[in-house]
Design a protein around this nucleic acid. Structure first.
Lengths: 224, 224
DNA sequence: CGCAGGATTGATATCAATCAATAACGGTGG
DNA sequence: CCACCGTTATTGATTGATATCAATCCTGCG
Protein backbone atom coordinates (compact mmCIF):
# COMPACT_ATOMS: atom_id res chain seq x y z
CA UNK A 1 0.00 0.00 0.00
CA UNK A 2 1.38 3.40 -0.97
CA UNK A 3 2.07 6.06 1.65
CA UNK A 4 -0.86 8.27 0.75
CA UNK A 5 -3.14 5.27 0.89
CA UNK A 6 -1.94 4.42 4.34
CA UNK A 7 -2.68 7.96 5.40
CA UNK A 8 -6.14 7.72 3.93
CA UNK A 9 -6.84 4.45 5.67
CA UNK A 10 -5.74 5.87 8.97
CA UNK A 11 -8.37 8.50 8.51
CA UNK A 12 -10.93 5.94 7.48
CA UNK A 13 -10.19 3.79 10.48
CA UNK A 14 -12.42 4.31 13.41
CA UNK A 15 -10.59 2.41 16.11
CA UNK A 16 -9.70 -1.05 17.25
CA UNK A 17 -11.86 -3.66 18.85
CA UNK A 18 -10.70 -6.52 20.98
CA UNK A 19 -13.03 -9.51 21.21
CA UNK A 20 -12.76 -12.51 23.48
CA UNK A 21 -12.61 -16.08 22.30
CA UNK A 22 -16.09 -17.65 21.92
CA UNK A 23 -17.88 -14.32 21.76
CA UNK A 24 -20.17 -13.59 18.83
CA UNK A 25 -19.39 -10.10 17.61
CA UNK A 26 -21.67 -9.92 14.59
CA UNK A 27 -25.17 -11.33 14.69
CA UNK A 28 -27.45 -12.49 11.91
CA UNK A 29 -30.30 -10.07 11.37
CA UNK A 30 -28.50 -7.17 12.98
CA UNK A 31 -27.64 -3.96 11.32
CA UNK A 32 -24.28 -2.99 12.70
CA UNK A 33 -22.84 0.39 11.64
CA UNK A 34 -19.38 -1.15 11.46
CA UNK A 35 -17.16 -3.15 9.22
CA UNK A 36 -13.92 -4.81 10.27
CA UNK A 37 -10.56 -6.02 9.15
CA UNK A 38 -9.02 -8.82 11.18
CA UNK A 39 -5.67 -7.82 12.64
CA UNK A 40 -5.00 -10.93 14.72
CA UNK A 41 -6.69 -14.09 15.94
CA UNK A 42 -9.32 -16.05 14.08
CA UNK A 43 -13.02 -16.87 14.04
CA UNK A 44 -15.78 -18.19 11.86
CA UNK A 45 -18.90 -17.10 9.99
CA UNK A 46 -22.04 -19.21 10.37
CA UNK A 47 -25.75 -19.43 9.81
CA UNK A 48 -28.36 -21.40 11.71
CA UNK A 49 -31.78 -22.83 11.00
CA UNK A 50 -34.62 -22.20 13.40
CA UNK A 51 -34.26 -25.56 15.11
CA UNK A 52 -30.62 -24.92 15.87
CA UNK A 53 -28.84 -26.76 13.07
CA UNK A 54 -25.70 -24.75 12.38
CA UNK A 55 -23.59 -24.45 9.26
CA UNK A 56 -20.18 -22.85 9.45
CA UNK A 57 -19.63 -21.03 6.17
CA UNK A 58 -16.00 -20.03 6.36
CA UNK A 59 -13.28 -18.94 8.72
CA UNK A 60 -11.92 -15.42 9.11
CA UNK A 61 -8.20 -14.88 9.50
CA UNK A 62 -5.88 -11.90 9.68
CA UNK A 63 -6.33 -9.68 6.65
CA UNK A 64 -9.92 -10.72 6.07
CA UNK A 65 -12.72 -8.23 5.72
CA UNK A 66 -15.70 -8.91 7.95
CA UNK A 67 -19.15 -7.44 7.62
CA UNK A 68 -19.04 -6.24 4.03
CA UNK A 69 -22.38 -7.91 3.32
CA UNK A 70 -23.99 -6.00 6.13
CA UNK A 71 -22.54 -2.79 4.78
CA UNK A 72 -23.66 -3.22 1.21
CA UNK A 73 -26.84 -5.22 1.62
CA UNK A 74 -28.28 -3.51 4.68
CA UNK A 75 -28.46 -6.59 6.88
CA UNK A 76 -26.09 -9.32 7.98
CA UNK A 77 -27.42 -12.73 7.14
CA UNK A 78 -24.80 -14.59 9.08
CA UNK A 79 -23.11 -14.36 12.46
CA UNK A 80 -19.41 -14.25 13.27
CA UNK A 81 -17.83 -15.77 16.35
CA UNK A 82 -14.28 -15.62 17.64
CA UNK A 83 -12.33 -18.85 18.11
CA UNK A 84 -9.38 -17.17 19.77
CA UNK A 85 -9.08 -13.68 21.16
CA UNK A 86 -9.11 -11.32 18.20
CA UNK A 87 -8.08 -7.80 17.41
CA UNK A 88 -10.19 -6.02 14.81
CA UNK A 89 -9.74 -2.78 12.96
CA UNK A 90 -13.07 -0.91 12.92
CA UNK A 91 -14.44 1.06 9.97
CA UNK A 92 -17.51 3.15 9.62
CA UNK A 93 -20.01 1.46 7.36
CA UNK A 94 -21.17 4.67 5.76
CA UNK A 95 -17.76 5.79 4.67
CA UNK A 96 -17.14 2.78 2.43
CA UNK A 97 -18.37 4.67 -0.57
CA UNK A 98 -15.84 7.41 0.12
CA UNK A 99 -13.13 4.85 -0.15
CA UNK A 100 -14.34 3.85 -3.61
CA UNK A 101 -14.57 7.48 -4.62
CA UNK A 102 -11.30 8.76 -3.26
CA UNK A 103 -9.10 5.70 -3.51
CA UNK A 104 -10.25 3.57 -6.43
CA UNK A 105 -7.36 1.17 -5.99
CA UNK A 106 -8.54 0.40 -2.46
CA UNK A 107 -12.07 -0.05 -3.69
CA UNK A 108 -10.67 -2.46 -6.23
CA UNK A 109 -8.97 -4.35 -3.41
CA UNK A 110 -12.22 -4.66 -1.51
CA UNK A 111 -13.76 -6.23 -4.58
CA UNK A 112 -10.78 -8.50 -4.94
CA UNK A 113 -11.34 -9.80 -1.44
CA UNK A 114 -15.03 -10.30 -2.09
CA UNK A 115 -14.28 -12.29 -5.24
CA UNK A 116 -11.76 -14.39 -3.35
CA UNK A 117 -14.28 -15.17 -0.64
CA UNK A 118 -16.71 -16.22 -3.33
CA UNK A 119 -14.12 -18.55 -4.81
CA UNK A 120 -13.54 -20.17 -1.46
CA UNK A 121 -17.25 -20.65 -0.91
CA UNK A 122 -17.46 -22.28 -4.32
CA UNK A 123 -14.90 -24.84 -3.26
CA UNK A 124 -16.61 -25.42 0.08
CA UNK A 125 -19.88 -25.99 -1.70
CA UNK A 126 -18.29 -28.53 -4.02
CA UNK A 127 -16.87 -30.20 -0.97
CA UNK A 128 -20.03 -30.39 1.10
CA UNK A 129 -22.12 -31.32 -1.90
CA UNK A 130 -19.95 -33.90 -3.60
CA UNK A 131 -17.04 -35.10 -1.51
CA UNK A 132 -17.26 -38.08 0.86
CA UNK A 133 -16.83 -37.56 4.59
CA UNK A 134 -13.15 -38.49 4.49
CA UNK A 135 -12.39 -36.32 1.48
CA UNK A 136 -14.28 -33.44 3.00
CA UNK A 137 -12.44 -33.60 6.29
CA UNK A 138 -9.11 -33.82 4.50
CA UNK A 139 -10.00 -30.86 2.32
CA UNK A 140 -11.08 -28.70 5.22
CA UNK A 141 -8.07 -29.32 7.38
CA UNK A 142 -5.77 -28.90 4.46
CA UNK A 143 -7.48 -25.67 3.54
CA UNK A 144 -7.34 -24.23 7.04
CA UNK A 145 -3.74 -25.23 7.47
CA UNK A 146 -2.68 -23.67 4.23
CA UNK A 147 -4.60 -20.50 4.81
CA UNK A 148 -3.31 -20.10 8.35
CA UNK A 149 0.27 -20.47 7.15
CA UNK A 150 -0.18 -18.07 4.27
CA UNK A 151 -1.31 -15.23 6.47
CA UNK A 152 1.40 -15.90 8.99
CA UNK A 153 -1.10 -16.98 11.57
CA UNK A 154 0.72 -20.27 12.08
CA UNK A 155 4.41 -21.03 12.11
CA UNK A 156 5.92 -24.21 10.75
CA UNK A 157 5.19 -27.23 12.91
CA UNK A 158 2.45 -25.52 14.90
CA UNK A 159 -1.00 -27.07 15.10
CA UNK A 160 -4.27 -25.38 14.23
CA UNK A 161 -5.92 -24.15 17.42
CA UNK A 162 -8.11 -23.65 19.25
CA UNK A 163 -11.20 -25.34 17.92
CA UNK A 164 -13.35 -28.38 18.64
CA UNK A 165 -14.51 -31.27 16.49
CA UNK A 166 -17.91 -29.68 16.73
CA UNK A 167 -16.63 -26.80 14.63
CA UNK A 168 -15.31 -29.24 12.06
CA UNK A 169 -18.61 -31.13 12.04
CA UNK A 170 -20.62 -27.97 11.50
CA UNK A 171 -18.36 -26.93 8.67
CA UNK A 172 -18.49 -30.28 6.93
CA UNK A 173 -22.23 -30.74 7.30
CA UNK A 174 -21.67 -34.00 9.22
CA UNK A 175 -22.69 -35.16 12.67
CA UNK A 176 -20.27 -34.81 15.53
CA UNK A 177 -19.89 -38.56 15.99
CA UNK A 178 -19.22 -39.27 12.38
CA UNK A 179 -16.77 -36.40 12.23
CA UNK A 180 -14.90 -37.89 15.13
CA UNK A 181 -14.67 -41.25 13.43
CA UNK A 182 -13.54 -39.66 10.21
CA UNK A 183 -10.82 -37.62 11.89
CA UNK A 184 -9.72 -40.77 13.62
CA UNK A 185 -9.23 -42.43 10.27
CA UNK A 186 -7.01 -39.59 9.11
CA UNK A 187 -5.08 -39.88 12.33
CA UNK A 188 -4.70 -43.65 12.01
CA UNK A 189 -3.19 -43.12 8.59
CA UNK A 190 -0.64 -40.87 10.24
CA UNK A 191 -1.76 -37.81 8.31
CA UNK A 192 -2.94 -35.59 11.14
CA UNK A 193 -2.81 -35.56 14.90
CA UNK A 194 -5.72 -34.29 16.93
CA UNK A 195 -5.06 -33.47 20.52
CA UNK A 196 -7.08 -31.34 22.85
CA UNK A 197 -8.47 -28.48 20.83
CA UNK A 198 -5.62 -28.74 18.43
CA UNK A 199 -4.92 -30.32 15.06
CA UNK A 200 -1.45 -30.86 13.67
CA UNK A 201 -0.95 -31.66 10.01
CA UNK A 202 1.82 -34.24 9.72
CA UNK A 203 1.66 -34.92 5.99
CA UNK A 204 0.37 -32.05 3.90
CA UNK A 205 0.82 -33.83 0.63
CA UNK A 206 -1.12 -36.95 1.53
CA UNK A 207 -3.82 -34.82 3.09
CA UNK A 208 -4.35 -32.95 -0.18
CA UNK A 209 -4.22 -36.27 -1.97
CA UNK A 210 -7.03 -37.75 0.07
CA UNK A 211 -9.03 -34.59 -0.46
CA UNK A 212 -8.44 -34.57 -4.17
CA UNK A 213 -7.62 -30.90 -3.88
CA UNK A 214 -4.97 -28.73 -5.43
CA UNK A 215 -4.57 -26.08 -2.80
CA UNK A 216 -5.20 -22.35 -2.75
CA UNK A 217 -3.77 -20.36 -5.62
CA UNK A 218 -0.71 -18.62 -4.32
CA UNK A 219 -1.63 -15.05 -5.13
CA UNK A 220 -0.86 -12.14 -2.92
CA UNK A 221 -3.87 -10.90 -1.03
CA UNK A 222 -4.31 -7.15 -0.83
CA UNK A 223 -4.44 -5.82 2.69
CA UNK A 224 -6.85 -3.11 3.65
CA UNK B 1 -27.94 4.60 -14.00
CA UNK B 2 -27.25 8.24 -14.84
CA UNK B 3 -26.86 9.38 -18.44
CA UNK B 4 -23.11 9.91 -18.27
CA UNK B 5 -22.70 6.47 -16.73
CA UNK B 6 -24.62 4.91 -19.58
CA UNK B 7 -22.34 6.65 -22.02
CA UNK B 8 -19.33 5.39 -20.15
CA UNK B 9 -20.63 1.85 -20.15
CA UNK B 10 -21.28 1.96 -23.84
CA UNK B 11 -17.65 2.77 -24.26
CA UNK B 12 -16.63 0.05 -21.86
CA UNK B 13 -18.75 -2.50 -23.62
CA UNK B 14 -16.96 -4.57 -26.18
CA UNK B 15 -19.85 -6.23 -27.96
CA UNK B 16 -22.52 -8.83 -27.52
CA UNK B 17 -22.22 -12.57 -27.49
CA UNK B 18 -24.94 -15.04 -28.22
CA UNK B 19 -24.51 -18.52 -26.77
CA UNK B 20 -26.58 -21.61 -27.49
CA UNK B 21 -28.35 -23.64 -24.86
CA UNK B 22 -26.14 -26.39 -23.35
CA UNK B 23 -22.90 -24.79 -24.47
CA UNK B 24 -20.20 -24.10 -21.91
CA UNK B 25 -18.92 -20.60 -22.49
CA UNK B 26 -16.51 -20.27 -19.61
CA UNK B 27 -14.25 -23.14 -18.62
CA UNK B 28 -12.53 -23.89 -15.33
CA UNK B 29 -8.80 -23.34 -15.58
CA UNK B 30 -9.07 -21.01 -18.53
CA UNK B 31 -7.93 -17.47 -18.60
CA UNK B 32 -10.49 -15.65 -20.68
CA UNK B 33 -9.86 -11.99 -21.45
CA UNK B 34 -13.56 -11.25 -21.08
CA UNK B 35 -16.18 -10.61 -18.48
CA UNK B 36 -19.91 -10.64 -19.10
CA UNK B 37 -23.24 -9.33 -18.02
CA UNK B 38 -26.25 -11.51 -18.75
CA UNK B 39 -28.79 -9.71 -20.92
CA UNK B 40 -31.22 -12.59 -21.46
CA UNK B 41 -31.55 -16.33 -20.90
CA UNK B 42 -30.07 -18.27 -18.05
CA UNK B 43 -27.33 -20.73 -17.16
CA UNK B 44 -25.35 -22.14 -14.26
CA UNK B 45 -21.91 -22.08 -12.69
CA UNK B 46 -20.37 -25.39 -11.67
CA UNK B 47 -17.24 -27.22 -10.59
CA UNK B 48 -16.28 -30.84 -11.04
CA UNK B 49 -14.00 -33.30 -9.31
CA UNK B 50 -11.57 -35.36 -11.35
CA UNK B 51 -13.80 -38.42 -11.41
CA UNK B 52 -16.68 -36.42 -12.84
CA UNK B 53 -18.77 -35.63 -9.80
CA UNK B 54 -20.32 -32.24 -10.49
CA UNK B 55 -21.56 -29.54 -8.14
CA UNK B 56 -23.68 -26.71 -9.47
CA UNK B 57 -22.79 -23.62 -7.46
CA UNK B 58 -25.39 -21.13 -8.55
CA UNK B 59 -27.46 -20.00 -11.49
CA UNK B 60 -26.88 -16.91 -13.59
CA UNK B 61 -29.82 -14.79 -14.66
CA UNK B 62 -30.30 -11.50 -16.46
CA UNK B 63 -28.40 -8.74 -14.71
CA UNK B 64 -25.79 -11.08 -13.26
CA UNK B 65 -22.10 -10.51 -13.69
CA UNK B 66 -20.20 -13.53 -14.99
CA UNK B 67 -16.46 -14.06 -14.91
CA UNK B 68 -15.48 -11.51 -12.28
CA UNK B 69 -13.39 -14.11 -10.46
CA UNK B 70 -11.42 -14.79 -13.60
CA UNK B 71 -10.84 -11.08 -14.02
CA UNK B 72 -9.63 -10.37 -10.53
CA UNK B 73 -8.00 -13.64 -9.58
CA UNK B 74 -6.30 -14.49 -12.85
CA UNK B 75 -8.00 -17.82 -13.38
CA UNK B 76 -11.56 -19.12 -13.46
CA UNK B 77 -12.05 -21.93 -11.00
CA UNK B 78 -15.49 -22.83 -12.24
CA UNK B 79 -17.26 -23.31 -15.55
CA UNK B 80 -20.44 -21.70 -16.80
CA UNK B 81 -22.96 -23.41 -19.06
CA UNK B 82 -26.10 -22.07 -20.73
CA UNK B 83 -29.46 -23.67 -19.95
CA UNK B 84 -31.34 -21.67 -22.56
CA UNK B 85 -29.99 -19.56 -25.39
CA UNK B 86 -28.37 -16.53 -23.83
CA UNK B 87 -27.35 -13.06 -24.84
CA UNK B 88 -24.31 -11.67 -23.08
CA UNK B 89 -22.79 -8.23 -22.95
CA UNK B 90 -19.02 -8.52 -23.31
CA UNK B 91 -16.46 -6.46 -21.39
CA UNK B 92 -12.73 -6.33 -21.60
CA UNK B 93 -11.17 -7.83 -18.53
CA UNK B 94 -8.35 -5.33 -18.40
CA UNK B 95 -10.56 -2.30 -18.38
CA UNK B 96 -12.30 -3.18 -15.15
CA UNK B 97 -9.90 -1.07 -13.18
CA UNK B 98 -10.75 1.91 -15.35
CA UNK B 99 -14.32 1.54 -14.33
CA UNK B 100 -13.33 1.72 -10.67
CA UNK B 101 -11.16 4.72 -11.37
CA UNK B 102 -13.48 6.73 -13.57
CA UNK B 103 -16.87 5.71 -12.28
CA UNK B 104 -16.59 4.86 -8.59
CA UNK B 105 -20.33 4.37 -8.28
CA UNK B 106 -20.18 1.62 -10.89
CA UNK B 107 -17.23 0.05 -9.15
CA UNK B 108 -19.31 0.14 -6.01
CA UNK B 109 -22.09 -1.65 -7.86
CA UNK B 110 -19.74 -4.40 -8.97
CA UNK B 111 -18.81 -4.94 -5.36
CA UNK B 112 -22.46 -4.94 -4.43
CA UNK B 113 -23.12 -7.74 -6.86
CA UNK B 114 -20.14 -9.70 -5.57
CA UNK B 115 -21.38 -9.36 -2.00
CA UNK B 116 -24.84 -10.48 -3.06
CA UNK B 117 -23.45 -13.55 -4.78
CA UNK B 118 -21.56 -14.35 -1.61
CA UNK B 119 -24.75 -14.07 0.40
CA UNK B 120 -26.52 -16.47 -1.91
CA UNK B 121 -23.68 -18.96 -1.70
CA UNK B 122 -23.89 -18.74 2.08
CA UNK B 123 -27.51 -19.78 1.95
CA UNK B 124 -26.79 -22.60 -0.51
CA UNK B 125 -24.06 -23.88 1.75
CA UNK B 126 -26.40 -23.87 4.72
CA UNK B 127 -28.86 -25.75 2.59
CA UNK B 128 -26.54 -28.43 1.27
CA UNK B 129 -24.84 -28.83 4.62
CA UNK B 130 -27.76 -28.88 6.98
CA UNK B 131 -31.13 -29.20 5.30
CA UNK B 132 -32.77 -32.58 4.57
CA UNK B 133 -33.36 -33.66 0.98
CA UNK B 134 -36.95 -32.43 1.00
CA UNK B 135 -36.10 -29.09 2.58
CA UNK B 136 -33.23 -28.62 0.19
CA UNK B 137 -35.32 -29.28 -2.88
CA UNK B 138 -38.03 -26.94 -1.63
CA UNK B 139 -35.48 -24.23 -0.92
CA UNK B 140 -33.83 -24.49 -4.31
CA UNK B 141 -37.00 -24.38 -6.34
CA UNK B 142 -38.36 -21.60 -4.25
CA UNK B 143 -35.13 -19.68 -4.66
CA UNK B 144 -34.99 -20.11 -8.42
CA UNK B 145 -38.62 -19.22 -8.83
CA UNK B 146 -38.29 -16.09 -6.79
CA UNK B 147 -35.13 -14.99 -8.47
CA UNK B 148 -36.50 -15.61 -11.95
CA UNK B 149 -39.55 -13.53 -11.19
CA UNK B 150 -37.57 -10.70 -9.66
CA UNK B 151 -35.46 -10.17 -12.72
CA UNK B 152 -38.44 -10.41 -15.03
CA UNK B 153 -37.18 -13.63 -16.49
CA UNK B 154 -40.50 -15.35 -15.69
CA UNK B 155 -44.04 -14.05 -15.85
CA UNK B 156 -46.77 -15.00 -13.41
CA UNK B 157 -47.94 -18.57 -13.87
CA UNK B 158 -45.02 -19.61 -16.05
CA UNK B 159 -42.88 -22.61 -15.08
CA UNK B 160 -39.14 -22.62 -14.64
CA UNK B 161 -37.53 -23.98 -17.79
CA UNK B 162 -35.64 -25.54 -19.35
CA UNK B 163 -33.68 -27.79 -17.02
CA UNK B 164 -33.52 -31.43 -15.99
CA UNK B 165 -33.71 -33.20 -12.66
CA UNK B 166 -30.04 -33.86 -13.14
CA UNK B 167 -29.39 -30.14 -12.75
CA UNK B 168 -31.41 -30.12 -9.56
CA UNK B 169 -29.56 -33.17 -8.25
CA UNK B 170 -26.17 -31.63 -8.93
CA UNK B 171 -27.20 -28.43 -7.19
CA UNK B 172 -28.57 -30.19 -4.13
CA UNK B 173 -25.66 -32.58 -3.77
CA UNK B 174 -28.03 -35.56 -4.07
CA UNK B 175 -28.21 -38.50 -6.45
CA UNK B 176 -30.48 -38.28 -9.47
CA UNK B 177 -32.76 -41.05 -8.27
CA UNK B 178 -33.21 -39.63 -4.82
CA UNK B 179 -33.83 -36.20 -6.28
CA UNK B 180 -36.56 -37.64 -8.44
CA UNK B 181 -38.24 -39.24 -5.45
CA UNK B 182 -37.96 -36.04 -3.47
CA UNK B 183 -39.48 -33.92 -6.22
CA UNK B 184 -42.25 -36.46 -6.48
CA UNK B 185 -43.06 -35.91 -2.84
CA UNK B 186 -43.36 -32.18 -3.37
CA UNK B 187 -45.56 -32.84 -6.35
CA UNK B 188 -47.77 -35.29 -4.42
CA UNK B 189 -48.32 -32.59 -1.83
CA UNK B 190 -49.56 -30.38 -4.65
CA UNK B 191 -46.80 -27.83 -4.16
CA UNK B 192 -45.04 -28.08 -7.50
CA UNK B 193 -45.64 -29.68 -10.86
CA UNK B 194 -42.78 -31.14 -12.84
CA UNK B 195 -43.41 -31.82 -16.47
CA UNK B 196 -40.90 -32.33 -19.22
CA UNK B 197 -38.00 -30.01 -18.54
CA UNK B 198 -40.24 -27.67 -16.68
CA UNK B 199 -41.19 -26.96 -13.07
CA UNK B 200 -44.24 -24.97 -12.06
CA UNK B 201 -44.57 -23.66 -8.52
CA UNK B 202 -48.21 -24.00 -7.47
CA UNK B 203 -47.92 -22.93 -3.87
CA UNK B 204 -45.10 -20.53 -3.13
CA UNK B 205 -45.96 -20.12 0.50
CA UNK B 206 -46.01 -23.80 1.35
CA UNK B 207 -42.83 -24.33 -0.62
CA UNK B 208 -41.01 -21.77 1.50
CA UNK B 209 -42.58 -23.33 4.54
CA UNK B 210 -41.21 -26.76 3.78
CA UNK B 211 -37.82 -25.22 3.08
CA UNK B 212 -37.81 -23.25 6.28
CA UNK B 213 -36.69 -20.28 4.28
CA UNK B 214 -37.64 -16.60 4.33
CA UNK B 215 -36.98 -15.64 0.75
CA UNK B 216 -34.55 -13.25 -0.89
CA UNK B 217 -34.39 -9.78 0.58
CA UNK B 218 -36.27 -7.50 -1.77
CA UNK B 219 -33.55 -5.00 -2.51
CA UNK B 220 -33.02 -3.44 -5.86
CA UNK B 221 -30.08 -4.94 -7.70
CA UNK B 222 -27.83 -2.48 -9.49
CA UNK B 223 -27.50 -3.15 -13.19
CA UNK B 224 -24.19 -2.82 -14.92
C1' DC C 1 -41.77 -46.84 -36.17
C1' DG C 2 -37.78 -46.74 -33.55
C1' DC C 3 -34.58 -44.21 -30.99
C1' DA C 4 -32.58 -41.16 -27.39
C1' DG C 5 -32.89 -38.42 -23.48
C1' DG C 6 -35.32 -37.78 -19.53
C1' DA C 7 -38.43 -39.41 -15.77
C1' DT C 8 -39.98 -43.01 -12.72
C1' DT C 9 -39.92 -47.05 -9.81
C1' DG C 10 -38.57 -51.06 -6.81
C1' DA C 11 -34.87 -53.69 -4.61
C1' DT C 12 -30.68 -53.60 -2.31
C1' DA C 13 -26.36 -51.67 -0.46
C1' DT C 14 -23.82 -48.00 2.02
C1' DC C 15 -22.92 -44.22 4.41
C1' DA C 16 -23.83 -41.32 7.91
C1' DA C 17 -27.15 -40.13 11.84
C1' DT C 18 -28.66 -41.23 16.15
C1' DC C 19 -28.53 -43.46 20.58
C1' DA C 20 -26.09 -44.67 24.52
C1' DA C 21 -22.17 -45.11 27.15
C1' DT C 22 -17.68 -44.24 28.68
C1' DA C 23 -13.18 -41.98 28.91
C1' DA C 24 -10.00 -38.13 29.19
C1' DC C 25 -9.12 -33.58 30.63
C1' DG C 26 -9.15 -29.07 32.81
C1' DG C 27 -10.90 -26.20 36.11
C1' DT C 28 -13.07 -25.32 40.73
C1' DG C 29 -14.10 -25.40 45.44
C1' DG C 30 -13.22 -27.59 49.65
C1' DC D 1 -4.27 -32.57 47.26
C1' DC D 2 -8.56 -34.47 46.11
C1' DA D 3 -13.46 -34.92 44.78
C1' DC D 4 -16.55 -33.10 41.65
C1' DC D 5 -18.23 -31.40 37.34
C1' DG D 6 -18.66 -29.76 32.66
C1' DT D 7 -16.76 -29.96 28.25
C1' DT D 8 -14.69 -32.55 24.69
C1' DA D 9 -13.34 -36.85 22.66
C1' DT D 10 -14.12 -41.76 21.77
C1' DT D 11 -16.48 -46.06 20.87
C1' DG D 12 -20.00 -49.69 19.74
C1' DA D 13 -24.75 -50.79 18.41
C1' DT D 14 -28.59 -49.65 15.80
C1' DT D 15 -31.45 -46.99 12.78
C1' DG D 16 -32.43 -44.19 9.00
C1' DA D 17 -31.47 -41.59 4.87
C1' DT D 18 -29.56 -41.56 0.64
C1' DA D 19 -26.81 -43.99 -3.00
C1' DT D 20 -26.57 -47.46 -6.30
C1' DC D 21 -28.35 -50.90 -9.40
C1' DA D 22 -31.50 -52.31 -12.73
C1' DA D 23 -35.49 -51.91 -15.18
C1' DT D 24 -39.30 -49.72 -17.35
C1' DC D 25 -41.86 -45.98 -19.09
C1' DC D 26 -42.59 -41.74 -21.41
C1' DT D 27 -42.30 -38.34 -25.07
C1' DG D 28 -40.57 -35.69 -28.72
C1' DC D 29 -38.36 -36.30 -32.95
C1' DG D 30 -36.05 -38.03 -37.18
Amino acid sequence: MAADETAFMKDFKRGELQVQATSTFLVEGNNSPHMYTVLSGWGFRYKTLEDGRRQILNFVLPGDLVGLQGTLLAEMQHSVEALSDMMLCVFERNSLYLLFKNRPSLGFDVTWLAAKEEQILDEHLLSVGRRSALERAAYLISFLNQRAHRVGHLKEGQPLAPFTQNHIADTLGLSLVHTNKTLKKLQDKGIIEWSGKTCLVKDTKRLMDVANWDGIADIQRPFI
